[in-house]
């Protein structure tokens, strides 16, 4: 026990040291001036993301929160290479992201396990792309299943698993790919509170064991505070970085603990105004359309950006 405490202290010390000489080391993930506009069916253009700049260092756990429709998922998809940004670029390990790659594995809200494969083969199918031999694949799949406490279910099929178990398999599959960055798109949103609570603990302990860099998107503020080193708050559409929080609470954190709740409430104070904006827009369709019209002709060329347009400004 004493050893554990000492190790924890040492680790904190190391973390601080890393923080100290941050400029020397390039960030693991660097989002530089990301903007993105969508064109709707009637030809209008809507700005979804505007000038997002984020640096994430190795081993950091970053959560992105924001009101619904603020472009959180779009941002994650851009990092994953599943979506293209209008302008700006994403650098992973200093290399520019051009499309989906095995260095950035995404976990979705749904587990997306292949139903025709058993749990072990669902993990192995990704490892095949890594060029591992059959024996190595099998061993690795079993190792990571152990990490998520599902060794017993290696030969089960996805339809036999509960939602929480499926997400654990998805987590094991993502981790087994040994990505540089793990991208998580509201992975626990579809689960019940109990299962989510357990997975929050497990994800923290797995993160501490593996030291993965994680970018996590959620609309659940407690989840964000519970998991992250740093919480980035996005504004309502177009999504801009509104505020950043460094969370220094001791781990493992509990999403229902007082400290977590207090911080979540504080962030909620920031977000409330943004959520109200979204609500007004949704209730009052007229002003929303006006906003779309004002954004026309910009940002789709990928270089020029319009000035931020307030949905209610005339």
């Amino acid at each position: 026990m004493i050893n554990k405490g000492v190790i924890a202290e040492l680790r904190d010390g190391v973390k601080k040291a890393v923080k100290g000489d941050r400029p020397a080391k390039p960030p693991k993930l660097h989002l530089r001036g990301i903007s993105k506009a969508f064109r709707s069916v009637n030809g209008d253009t809507t700005l979804a993301l505007q000038d997002i700049n984020v640096k994430i260092r190795e081993g950091e756990f970053v959560c992105i929160v924001g009101p619904s429709g603020c472009g959180k998922t779009t941002l994650l998809n851009i990092v994953a290479g599943l979506d293209r940004s209008g302008c700006g670029e994403v650098l992973c390990n200093g290399k520019r992201v051009k499309g989906p790659g095995m260095d950035r594995i995404v976990m979705f809200q749904e587990s997306v396990l292949f139903p025709w494969l058993n749990v072990r083969n669902n993990i192995e199918i990704g490892l095949k792309s890594r060029g591992l031999s059959k024996g190595a694949r099998r061993q690795k799949a079993l190792d990571f299943l152990k990490l998520v406490h599902l060794s017993k279910f290696a030969n089960a099929h996805p339809h036999e698993l509960s939602g929480g178990m499926k997400q654990r398999v998805a987590l094991a599959r993502s981790l087994a790919m040994e990505p540089e960055v793990l991208l998580m798109d509201e992975p626990f949103t579809a689960l019940d509170a109990q299962t989510r609570w357990i997975l929050h603990y497990e994800l923290q302990s797995i993160w501490e064991k593996t030291g993965k860099t994680i970018l996590f998107v959620t609309h659940n503020l407690r989840e964000a505070v519970c998991l992250a080193d740093r919480v980035i708050v996005l504004s309502s559409r177009p999504g801009r970085i509104k505020q950043e929080y460094h969370i220094d609470l001791p781990r493992p954190r509990d999403d229902s603990s007082v400290e977590v709740a207090a911080l979540a409430t504080e962030i909620m104070g920031i977000l409330r105004g943004e959520i109200e904006k979204v609500m007004k827009e949704e209730l009052d369709e007229g002003s929303c359309k006006e906003c779309d019209v004002k954004c026309v002709g910009a940002a789709t060329d990928g270089r020029k950006l319009p000035a931020p347009v307030s949905p209610h400004g005339k």
Partner: peptide, 16 residues
């Protein structure tokens, strides 16, 4: 579509 997306993420391409 998520199956195809996920296959891409896991590096499953071409004939595979």
């Amino acid at each position: 579509p998520l199956f195809i997306k996920n296959a891409g993420i896991l590096g499953i391409k071409g004939w595979r």
